[in-house]
């Protein structure tokens, strides 16, 4: 059933098959004068889960924002499905198939769950009922709470609304900025399960995580960022097994 969460176009890559679906290379930039990113590179293949981890202040969230066009780049290039999107606005990137779930303030608190999902699909002109059913199938609790204002839900439920809202545009790439921040471990496992499920339907996932160990467990590819550059890049399992990564970033 989750097969149809993505757009039909996203199913068949039109770009260079050798190239990753999302490719952000050599990103350099920051807010104001000082750069935060110093040549950061992130690639995600179709249906892959890519996780960015690293110490505080490493520029993880900044890298996400750069990929999404919320931060002007001094250098570097972002391509999606082989097309250069470096200069596009975030809104335009949403139209090209990117979905973004911010870390905080990621729902419309006074609007009902259903309205939140509707707003997620704001740019769509076609029928959205089917996509909404798919989101409800993915997060059944939201179906029960669909008339409730999102602001009244628990933290975990609110994150589900936020992810659901981003899925409403049927993105081919879903970007999550610390989706498990502030939720209980049980809810975190549940959320990760759902994220795996979303990835299996063919949607690429790029996410930043504080809970590095658990996130790398599910990651097809992990990026360890330090001071705005890639320190380690490998599969999640390999990174977990790497003694240096364990010692420096995973606390032994």
């Amino acid at each position: 059933m989750t097969e149809t969460l993505t757009t039909p176009a996203a199913g068949s890559a039109t770009g260079d098959p050798a190239r990753p679906y999302l490719s952000a290379t050599g990103m350099r930039g920051g807010y104001g004068k000082a750069d935060i990113l110093h040549g950061c590179t992130l690639n995600v293949d179709k249906g892959q889960i890519a996780v960015i981890v690293g110490p505080n202040g490493a520029g993880k969230s900044t890298a996400m924002k750069a990929v999404f066009g919320m931060l002007p780049l001094r250098e570097g290039r972002v391509t999606l499905d082989g097309q250069d999107i470096t200069t596009l606005s975030p809104q335009e990137r949403v139209r090209r198939g990117m979905g973004f779930v911010p870390q905080v303030n990621n729902v419309f608190p006074s609007m009902s769950v259903e309205e939140n999902l509707e707003m997620g699909a704001f740019i769509r002109r076609d029928e959205i009922a089917e996509t909404m059913q798919q989101v409800y199938d993915l997060f059944p609790i939201l179906r029960d709470k669909r008339r409730q204002p999102a602001g009244e839900l628990s933290g975990g439920q609110r994150q589900q609304v936020a992810v659901g809202r981003a899925l409403m545009t049927r993105p081919s790439l879903l970007m999550l900025d610390e989706p498990t921040a502030g939720v209980s471990p049980i809810v975190m496992d549940e959320l990760f399960d759902r994220i795996i499920e979303i990835a299996r339907s063919g949607i690429s996932i790029l996410m930043v995580e504080q809970n590095a160990r658990q996130a790398l467990e599910i990651a097809d590819i992990g990026y360890v960022l330090v001071q705005g550059t890639n320190r380690f890049t490998d599969s999640g399992q390999a990174l977990l097994a790497d003694p240096e990564v364990r010692r420096t970033f995973l606390g032994g």
Binding site: Q91, V94, F100, P102, N105, P109, S110, M119, F122
Partner: peptide
């Protein structure tokens, strides 16, 4: 409700 998220939603 949420200006930034509204922008992200197009």
């Amino acid at each position: 409700d949420n200006e930034d998220l509204a922008l992200l939603s197009g």
